[in-house]
Design a protein around this nucleic acid. Structure first.
Length: 472
RNA sequence: CGGGGAUUGGCGCAAUUGGCUAGCGCGCAUGGUUUGGGACCAUGAGGCUGCAGGUUCGAAUCCUGUAUCCCCGACCA
């Protein structure tokens, strides 16, 4: 273990991941199995994601609302695939107020059923459509194995649920939502990924089609980072929900649902880190610039405050704690992933300049006081772009075109990554590949071109290359 | 849920054929000297050894149960 008490990013990613979450004070273990406490620094990241997404969600006319945590079991039972998919991971309330409940209540694993029950009450006419609602909430899925942020028994997310008169309108929202997620990942979190369709076995329980956004992590594992589902009319039919259309006919609305969770923070942590800790992209960093006056240099304080005033457009922390030495603080702020650090000591006061350090590259540069604000602005933009490009390059470098099964197996045994290979789309073949190599289908990329080939495993004809990988 | 490992001041660890008042480092508090890449001195606070039972003259140590965490799988966002 290095001096900073972190395991090696390269060789012990799982341990590094836990170390950095605890030491950077993003989160802590809760005294409840599989649950975590999201600490203020980690929650600020979630709030950044919420703010970014809320703006785009509302611009599109989708409104936020809130539905109950508890779902009567008979609601879940209405959609067969849905309940079968979620039954194994439900937390169920059997007692309330000291008495056994007449009907058990599921703690929501997702809110389709309770929301659509209400939608059907609120809509009688085609004029009442579309329903465009999103909610930010917690959900519970009783997972067998948990990791902080990536898979906890309770997690935070947003779930958008819209209903439309036509399938096309609904599909437009499905794609719009995935585009929203891509913007969030690319622009806010500096993360690259591939959007595409899930296979039938991997899709959401109750969906017609599911679109996923898959990101590659440094250990070559693939992280399903959010999903957007075309629910067709499965739920409206299950709930016997109809509205009258323009012709007076009773029709079932077309629906979609889409969600992004606190798992995104897990991807953010892992994809950008290094042996010194986190590297937060400036757009999401709760602190974009930390100003560290060298402790003991009294003359630096005035300049430090002056610099802070010139940076009012940014999220700036002025670290006035003089009980720690400069080196200690440098390491602390690097661990916490602050993109830029400004060091100010007597030397700088004398030369009317400051030292700026950038977290992503480790470069230090001397900048004249008058030019700090413009430098900070361009450096932050540069860091944001650089982190995204790094992740994009990593992903592309680890995306392999695979044309025979031996190659496929060899890749899964070594570098992993995204394996782009032809597949016959037969679920049995998919299952066999998983058993034999651990790889699952990740997605059929939205932009995949038609290309005739043969299934990498069974040799049957195939029309597209799918992405395979090891699931996180 | 299967396999492996762990749980001792806030954190990391030590303490066995069962035996003294459970130690050490870091951190923390107070005072002082320091401060440009993890400073130092002095003094001090902080433990019914995860929890519940049991065996024993005596348990951190042995037994039973249980909880939680980590790693590797199977299941999933």
């Amino acid at each position: 273990m290095a001096k900073n008490q972190l395991h090696s990013f390269q060789n012990e990613l799982s341990e590094w991941y836990n170390d950095v979450i605890l030491k950077a004070e993003l989160a802590d273990y809760a005294p409840v199995k599989g649950c975590m406490v999201i600490r203020p620094y980690g929650y600020a990241i979630w709030e950044g994601i919420q703010n970014f997404m809320n703006t785009l969600i509302k611009e599109h006319g989708v409104q936020n609302a809130y539905f109950p945590l508890f779902i009567p079991m008979h609601f879940l039972n209405k959609e067969k695939e849905h309940v079968e998919g979620f039954a194994p991971e439900l937390a169920i309330v059997t007692h309330g107020g000291g008495e056994k409940l007449p009907e058990e209540l599921a703690v929501r694993p997702t809110s389709e059923t309770i929301m659509y029950e209400m939608y059907s009450k609120w809509t009688k006419s085609w004029r009442d459509l579309p329903v465009l609602i999103n909610q930010w909430c917690n959900v519970v899925r009783w997972e067998k194995r948990t990791y902080m942020f990536l898979r906890t028994s309770e997690f935070l997310w947003q779930e958008g649920h819209c209903a439309h008169l036509t399938h096309q309108e609904s599909l437009d929202i499905v794609l719009w939502a995935m585009n929203l997620y891509q913007q969030t990942y690319n622009q806010l979190l500096g993360l690259y990924g591939i959007a595409g369709y899930k296979s039938n076995t991997e899709k959401f329980a109750g969906a017609g089609k599911s679109i996923t956004f898959e990101m590659l992590m440094p250990n070559g594992k693939s992280l399903q980072s959010c999903t957007s589902h075309d629910l067709g009319q499965n739920f409206s039919k299950s709930f016997n929900w109809t509205v009258q259309d323009q012709n007076g006919q009773n029709v079932y609305p077309w629906q979609n649902s889409w969600g992004l969770s606190t798992r995104s923070i897990g991807g953010l942590i892992m994809a950008h880190g290094d042996d010194n800790g986190l590297k937060l992209p400036p757009n999401i960093a709760p602190i974009q610039v930390v100003i560290v006056p060298i402790p003991g240099h009294q003359d630096a304080l005035e300049l430090a405050k002056k610099i802070k005033d010139t940076l009012s457009l940014f999220r700036v922390e002025l670290d006035l704690d003089d009980t720690q030495t400069a080196g200690f603080k440098f390491n602390k702020w690097e661990l916490k992933g602050v993109p830029l650090r400004i060091e100010i000591g007597s030397r700088d006061v004398a030369s009317n300049s400051v030292v700026i350090y950038r977290r992503d590259t480790g470069e230090k540069m001397t900048v004249a006081v008058a030019e700090v604000a413009t430098n900070v602005q361009s450096l932050l933009a540069n860091i944001q772009a650089n982190l995204f490009e790094n992740h994009k390059k990593f992903t592309q470098d680890h995306t392999l075109k695979i044309d025979n099964y031996d190659q496929f197996k060899q890749a899964m045994d070594t570098t992993r990554g995204f394996l782009s290979a032809h597949w016959c789309e037969d679920p049995e073949c998919e299952a066999a590949i998983k058993t034999e190599t651990k790889a699952t289908t990740r997605c059929l990329p939205l932009d995949a071109k038609e290309e005739s080939g043969t299934c990498v495993r069974c040799g049957k004809p195939s029309t597209h290359r799918w992405l395979f990988g090891l699931s996180y």
